[in-house]
Nucleic acid binder design. Structure first.
Lengths: 343, 343
DNA sequence: TTGTATGCGTTATCAA
DNA sequence: TTGATAACGCATACAA
């Protein structure tokens, strides 16, 4: 076990004890009221109302429509809130007005830099729009991801962002919630994608220009509906059009950094011995993988050998900026479904 | 703008339109009731009760204490739930029983692989413990992170996991919530850390053994209370003990991959010209940075030059596995505060 | 500008 | 084993 795995392990376990702690000290002692942690009475609008002599309604208005109060009364309530140390309770507010401000996110993993950066972008929108995100990392199993969705629905989310593959868009659309898919099969929902085909065409052309004798594209298998399929097709089309010797390696690419790294290492060995003496141009499906492949090459040869040309995709920041690893800048495609949920 | 930034931009914007969509079609048409999206009436326990002839209480019991119902009646209710397509509402449940099953997370960023992997570990605990995580990426400003915490508290979270630096542990402890800090100042709360000092000792010793003429440690400035300070101290102590020429570069290390990359590039130039002809051993504060530095070196020299020895830290999977970048395996330290919130 | 009464959907209490 | 009723904390329609 590496130190990192060990630390992860302890983090996992510490959250486990956090959870036990919560269960024992928070729930079991009959501190029932929401937020009423170890007996500190929750201050509610009722308390503020009693304290100030106003009604609950007026206190509520202080928050939702302050202009309807006189400045003086606003001050009185404001002071009371401070004095009694009022803590707002959005759970009660949700139940009353229906606005959870929750958006659900299902993302396959966080080890591919592409995904963690996307999640970063998603979370960042909070500062502008105030929506909170309930995030689940998918595990590629339909049944568990359906469970995640049920859980999300039970929290009355107002929309979903899906970066996971497993659930077909038709099913997602049936939930009648606003949905955005990112780089996924998107027949029945809105989506934002890069133009995978054009990107692959660029990548393949670039590799060809480096004078590689054989072009290789490594990727997972995708159905033609998935945008990522465009990468495979773009590669094949260009190779065939210009009659470039090529090989398509479609295989399981792993579910963790370690797995992917091992798989790519094996593939490198195969390619290395199969195409000895030839200049090999390898088109990896993302920049994390390009980076891994580069690491393997450096580890094996002490430096990047001349007979290898590597190219990634996403252009995510983690990608190598060294010459042999080119940047691909595919166009962005927006697909906004106008079919709003039926009434 | 790179393609990746462009895609990020569009993701950001699409979420923006998702939000507008929600606002227009969900809220403005007076679909007030929680989950009552475009007029589909929400099925509640009341409906199930009426349909089956039982009371709400019995329906509730079907979920929380099914054994108290006869098998036959369980079946009747189960059928009714199916038939009416009941959707559970955890918001109402929270208000009634106080258990949100929410844990708040504040994490500085997701571009350092260290953080995204930690978040991954945190999210993974859902399958075992069922806690949902409300995640905020910190921005290094006390005031905004305090706002995040207020928001979290208003959702009645049951605990917090903090990976951010800004808020002192004394303040966090004052919220009287179960809290876990990861690699942060932890005087008043529980935490899990690696032994930064021992790790730095290992790293420095390894670098020294490679025969480097000058050892360099690049890091941000930390106060001695922060665990990360141990890395700086460990480096200095070893260098001084064995009288190894060394330089400590403490500087702002950036808030994004691009920023960090530029900063490290500049530092490389400085080091490169300052120590020409000498073998330079560089100890970077994490593996992402080690990776970046390696990229810069390869970009500059076409390969990794012999007079550079690079070492990272965390041992996160993204680290280079090539020889010059060694792995550091620091011990893990657990700090479990037994001071439970006072009654 | 403020108050009264009711509802949101569930769980808890007490009684039957 | 089941039911009636009162919370939970806030928002809103309507009245004043």
């Amino acid at each position: 076990m590496t130190a990192f795995q060990e630390l992860s392990f302890f983090v996992y376990n510490h959250i486990k004890s956090l959870v036990f702690y919560i269960n024992i000290h928070y729930h079991k002692h009959n501190y029932i009221s929401v937020g009423n942690y170890h007996g500190q009475k929750n201050i509610t609008f009722n308390d503020i109302a009693k304290y100030t002599g106003f009604s609950k309604t007026t206190v509520s208005r202080y928050f939702n429509n302050p202009d309807s109060l006189t400045l003086k009364n606003q001050q009185i309530i404001s002071d009371a809130l401070d004095k009694l140390n009022y803590q707002e309770n959005k759970v009660a507010r949700i139940l009353a007005n229906g606005k959870t401000e929750f958006i659900g996110v299902i993302i396959p993993n966080l080890y591919l830099h592409y995904y963690s950066e996307m999640l970063n972008q998603i979370l960042k929108t909070y500062d502008t729009y105030g929506y909170k995100f309930l995030v689940f990392t998918g595990d590629d199993h339909k049944s568990t991801e359906r469970k995640y969705i049920q859980e999300l629905l039970s929290y009355k989310i107002e929309g979903m962002v899906i970066l996971s593959h497993t659930i077909p868009s038709r099913e997602l659309a049936s939930y009648n919630l606003p949905i955005v898919m990112i780089e996924r099969e998107d027949q029945f929902v809105s989506s934002v994608n890069t133009d995978n085909y054009m990107g692959a065409v660029q990548a393949t052309s670039l590799l060809a220009k480096t004078g590689a004798d054989i072009l290789i594209h490594i990727n997972a298998e995708f159905s033609p509906q998935v945008p990522s399929y465009g990468r495979i097709k773009g590669f094949s089309d260009i190779c065939e059009e210009y009659q470039i010797p090529h090989e398509l390696i479609l295989t399981d690419t792993g579910r963790s950094y370690e797995e992917s790294s091992l798989i790519l290492k094996d593939l490198l060995e195969i390619v290395d011995s199969k195409y000895q003496g030839k200049t090999k141009g390898i088109f990896l499906p993302n920049d994390t993988f390009a980076n891994i492949m580069l690491n393997h090459l450096i580890q094996k040869y002490g430096q990047l050998p001349d007979d290898y040309k590597i190219i990634g995709f996403d252009d995510s920041p983690v990608s190598m900026s060294s010459e042999p690893v080119h940047k691909i800048i595919p166009p962005i495609l927006i697909n906004r479904k106008t079919t709003e949920p039926s009434h």
